[in-house]
Nucleic acid binder design. Structure first.
Lengths: 222, 222
DNA sequence: GCGCTAATCGAAACATGTTCTAAATTTTAC
DNA sequence: GTAAAATTTAGAACATGTTTCGATTAGCGC
């Protein structure tokens, strides 16, 4: 890599690090472009040159920090459907456990404020991961024949996204995040699978339901 | 009602009308608080007194304009599940047909910008409507026994919301809005119903899928 | 080493949502 | 009718995301 690109990458890294540190220290409040730039030791214009928008920076932080790889390792030995639920559980638990960091992060990431909001939220890596799980489920004969894997993955991503949005909007408490997402996945997965898989999924469905009914009623969804 | 409250209500009405007119004329661009206030003939502070935030005003416009009642009348004669799909179709078609108006509206409504975003997006009326459909489906024995109606409705609302969000973010084109939402509903409903209902729902599922696969691939979901 | 190119910088500017202040106005209660 | 209370008003202010612009700096090919 040329020295020029090298310096760019270094600035990029510093900007992402600055944003991460600011969220960590001040939550949503202190996360302004001016603060990020100052913290990264660059001018206000540079983040715009390198990322284009505040949202893009936040998404970069989200991508950067999302190192679930090790946690996902144990998935291999599970049933092909259990694996999906397990992945959801891991993700949501991960966010819930460090709420002070991830809620501001997702709040900014889901901010639809700007005009040019084409910033892809779902990364290639992320898509590939879920696509892999769905493909394996399909290969195992669990998925309804004829159902398009791509469309199914996108539907599941939307279930994921809507749970995050509800969380960010305050419609569901952090303690309900996993169960809310899980219930959405259970419904969609029971809807997407062959009958033999239904009993197991129904068990999960009812488990999540029990959890949600135990706690104070959640506010309406977005 | 006291004269004072009367005047307040009148101002409220004028503010909502101003916002509606501005969206109609200028789309998203011209919809600033200053513009709304000027158009309504009130000072900038008044909308904040009466609504609290820009988002609340937009939600009020959305509630005000959402008069699907007449269009929903024909639902009565349909099968209890078909009714739900029909309601989705009516809603989405309604938004798609007047995209220039409803896209800016939903863009603002889903804006998570501000701090106090507790503004309930899902109104009582809206919830009651979908709850009614779900309750009827349950009464007809279509819904999986033991599944909580409230949680199911909220899950379906999230499917709805995520389709709108994808639309607003530009992840799916307007021409795909109905099919995207429909596919999400089909998955969740197949997941929530007894096996006897599955063939009919699968037919819809495949119908939506066919429609989505026909058009250019949609961008990733939010 | 030298010019060219690309990138950053510093600073200002703009639009906007929101809040605050004190003055003016209108409704209500007596 | 008049005093008190509640609201609106005008205007400024603040924080913020984003853009613009001219000046400056640093790396690249030669």
């Amino acid at each position: 890599m040329s020295q020029r690109e090298d310096a760019k990458a270094e600035r990029r890294r510093r900007i992402v690090a600055a944003a991460r540190a600011l969220i960590r220290e001040t939550g949503d409040a202190g996360l302004s472009m001016r603060a990020i730039a100052a913290r990264a030791g660059v001018s206000l214009t540079t983040p715009y040159n390198l990322f284009g928008s505040k949202r893009a920076i936040v998404v970069a932080v989200l991508e950067d920090v999302r190192q679930f790889q090790d946690r996902f390792a144990e998935l291999q030995q599970l049933d092909v459907i259990d694996r999906i639920f397990q992945a959801v559980s891991i993700s949501m638990t991960y966010y819930a456990q460090d709420e002070a960091f991830y809620r501001p992060l997702w709040t900014e990431a889901l901010d639809t404020n700007g005009k040019e909001l084409r910033t892809t939220l779902s990364s290639e890596r992320r898509y590939a991961f879920w696509r892999g799980l769905v493909d394996e489920a399909a290969a195992a004969g669990a998925v309804l024949p004829g159902l398009d894997a791509d469309l199914l993955v996108r539907s599941l991503e939307r279930v994921f996204g809507s749970a995050m949005l509800s969380w960010v909007l305050g419609a569901i408490p952090t303690s309900n995040l996993e169960a809310t997402a899980g219930l959405g996945y259970a419904l969609a997965l029971r809807g997407a699978t062959v009958p033999e898989r239904h009993p197991a999924i129904e068990a999960r469905l009812m488990g999540y339901q029990r959890e949600l009914l135990r706690l104070p009623k959640a506010a309406p969804a977005a």
